[in-house]
Design a protein around this nucleic acid. Structure first.
Lengths: 205, 205
DNA sequence: ACTCCTCTTGATAGATCGTTCTATTAAATT
DNA sequence: AATTTAATAGAACGATCTATCAAGAGGAGT
């Protein structure tokens, strides 16, 4: 009942983990540092996450994955059309990357690569997040009049370009990859809209 | 003089590290496992790499980065034109990913994300590799008649799409992201070639 | 007052990490 | 043959990791 002015300990642990995991990876982040960053007692981690690091990581993946998906999707809500949404998405990503000294990119990409071949439950969690992003994007693009296959291809192209651009931009400490990737996706989007009339498969053999 | 039928120990350590690092990350791979995988005595790691894990990782990044760059670049040599090269590159990546049970993708992407904000020497190493890929690609596309800026944008778009598609494909255990990313890059390449005559900026306002 | 119950707190265990160390064997050089 | 160098081999060290444990603080309800 008493509304404490401080945030929930559990939430603090989750937030600290999310930030640390995406900056230095899952295996590279110790729980001691998590507790310290969250200003939480060490034992509280195992109080709220009895499943240990695995459970903590899975909740981080799913919660921050959903959060980031909503963030990107809100850009599409705020933009009049698809093309400007693509531009704004990549420009916004570039800005926030610079603002955080090239640290805060995708919250789950680092974890996804780490666990893809080593931890099946966590791999599934990252796969679920990516799948939900794709589904949300396909639904969001319904008003474009494109076929579902075309929308799916487009949104996957956008996500993959964004993810890959994060890799290069963080490594090179430059927004150039993000800008170039944005232009690439824009080209694909323009082509898709231009070919709207075509019904059949896209492939030009 | 005597040509041993076995490979150099140093090379074995490097190869084992490269494979392990890209599958389970840098922080997630212990040197004990490296020695064991390389069938090398543990002490030999520090004999050949006195700088420890850092030196080993840097050599892995630079050597396997150069190797992978040459691999992708050889596709462009074997293809008659840019468009088919793009197709072959993404299809080949999809095939080799399936062949290795979605394990062997880009040899340095996982490391790049891990070290981007935590280890400056290694971050620089990954940045150097990406920069060399871009430079090589720009040079390779010289015969397209595109401006250097256009070539650069195109090749960065290709690399970022490929990297991002690896992330999603490995996580989802599906080649769909790689296929979709390939189509996206193909669209951008077609648009670039189509606009070859235009001299000014690409933007169609 | 008393009993739950949630949460806090830090010590501690046991394993593994990167690193260093000494000792031994193999090869090359003088 | 003698000596130096390269490589092998793994034990040992301190630090850090995940995970567990026991003990206590604070409130709510009876």
């Amino acid at each position: 009942m008493v509304s404490t002015n401080t945030v929930d300990t559990r939430t603090r642990i989750l937030a600290a983990s999310s930030e640390l995991f995406r900056r230095q990876g899952l295996a590279g982040t110790g729980l001691k540092l998590v507790a310290q960053t969250a200003k939480a007692p060490f034992g509280s981690i195992y109080h709220f996450f009895p499943g240990g690091k695995g459970q903590l990581a899975e909740e981080v993946i799913r919660s921050s994955g959903a959060l980031y998906g909503n963030l990107v999707m809100s850009i599409f809500d705020a933009c009049p059309d698809l093309l400007t949404a693509v531009d704004v998405a990549f420009e916004g990503a570039a800005e926030s990357l610079v603002a955080t000294d090239f640290a805060d990119a995708c919250p789950i990409a680092t974890i996804a690569l780490e666990v893809a071949s080593t931890d099946e439950p966590l791999r599934i969690a990252t796969a679920d997040v990516f799948a939900s992003w794709i589904d949300a994007g396909v639904a969001r693009l319904a008003d474009t009049g494109l076929s579902e296959a075309a929308r799916r291809e487009l949104i996957i192209g956008l996500i993959t370009s964004l993810e890959g651009a994060f890799v290069l931009s963080r490594a090179m400490r430059s927004t150039e990859p993000l800008i170039a990737a944005g232009r690439t996706v824009r080209c694909a989007a323009e082509a898709a809209i231009g070919n709207k009339a075509d019904q059949g498969p896209v492939g030009v053999e």
